[in-house]
Design a protein around this nucleic acid. Structure first.
Lengths: 209, 209
DNA sequence: CTTGCTGTTTACCGTCCAGTCAACTAGTCT
DNA sequence: AGACTAGTTGACTGGACGGTAAACAGCAAG
């Protein structure tokens, strides 16, 4: 078996699944190798360290997220603001599936790793931050579309996207903590309030008091 | 030294600080003992396991949070909605202090543990969920006050509190990931939009599209 | 045919981990 | 005084961890 093999891919996939289901530190190299059907020595042929595998897994995580959740939710077959709402429904659906399979809501794989690793590994942190920025830009684009077609004329797309993304992460954190996928749906109903009530609105309410 | 000692307290305090600064799994019993100035054997005199210490640390964490962040922010010396805004400023201030001391934004200690442990330890998860509910009630009370004094007449305090708390956790997650305390302030400006744009408003915008 | 590269296998290393144990100290109660 | 209990100490256990080493297999190019 000289040239090429899919062992590397299998390792990344195994890492994605195991780390998402548990966490970085709760999953050992041994276990990742076992699930991938790869010997431990081979692991270190493909990756210099567990951390490097995790970085590779991060990109694969992002790819899978786009394919299975973000892509379907943000498809252009409905008006922009409806896509935002659909993201929450889509997320609720996915998490409900995890719930039925393993009895646990797993939340956002990037958010999970972000909180676990940000204070421990600067490179990992920076990588996740970059992916977060990409996500925000995706949302900002959608909001810009909504601004232009008149469904949300007065918003600041970039600022609202930041707030909205933070809210999404918060909602998924709550769902994981409550172990209840339904609260994603419920909390999702408040999402558009965050978009349309822009900065000025917030300030107005306070000074009025 | 027969009766009583503050070793237990010191262990809890050390656990709070170390676990907050890193994580549950990144901190060992050994290290907690070292910081507390307690021998390892003594540790297991006070706590049957590391997990039990963590549960005790969780309550202490909550106490400290109330004392240092939530209490000052939600004090009744300003109108209710201004307290919400003050929470974000207060959080930004605290995180900026961590930033200056250790170069890192640490985020919400409860949120951190929630994402790390929810899928690993059901009891810890339930405990954190309970604390989250208490936090939501605190917010709901504040919003109820705002509803009654007319500054936000049409809101559903309980629902808005849920959304607002999720947003707070999301904002702190973002701050930790970006390692930037200032974004707490910035994102905080969107918080009241979440309160005042209630469920009906969100639905209205979508059907209008 | 030989050199070299890509993979694979297995056994192994040192370290750290949570948790154990038995001996010991010093106060309290009878 | 003696028994009991709360607290302390430091050495220890077994297992898991991330990572290493060396031998080997197959393909490709010179």
């Amino acid at each position: 078996m000289g040239r090429q093999s899919d062992a590397r891919e299998r390792l990344v996939q195994a890492a994605v699944q195991l780390i998402y289901a548990r966490s970085y530190s709760a999953v050992g190299v041994q276990e990742i190798c076992a699930r991938a059907g790869v010997q431990k020595g081979s692991f270190y042929h493909f990756f210099p360290s567990k951390r490097d595998l995790t970085i590779a897994a991060l990109d694969e995580l992002w790819r899978g997220l786009q394919e299975r959740v973000v892509g379907p939710a943000f498809a252009r077959d409905v008006p922009p603001l409806a896509r935002i709402e659909r993201f929450f429904d889509q997320s609720a659906r996915v998490q409900r599936e995890f719930m039925e399979q393993s009895g646990q809501v797993l939340g956002c794989p990037l958010g999970n790793l972000a909180l676990e690793m940000s204070t421990q590994d600067p490179l990992l942190r920076a990588r996740i931050e970059a992916l977060f920025q990409a996500a925000e830009q995706q949302i900002a684009q959608t909001l810009e579309e909504a601004r232009q077609d008149g469904s949300a004329p007065d918003i600041d797309p970039a600022g609202a996207a930041r707030a909205l993304f933070a809210y999404m992460e918060g909602v998924l954190l709550m769902a994981k903590t409550r172990n209840d996928p339904e609260c994603i749906r419920e909390l999702g109903r408040n999402a558009l309030a965050l978009v349309c009530g822009s900065t000025q609105a917030g300030a107005r309410i306070v000074t009025q008091e």
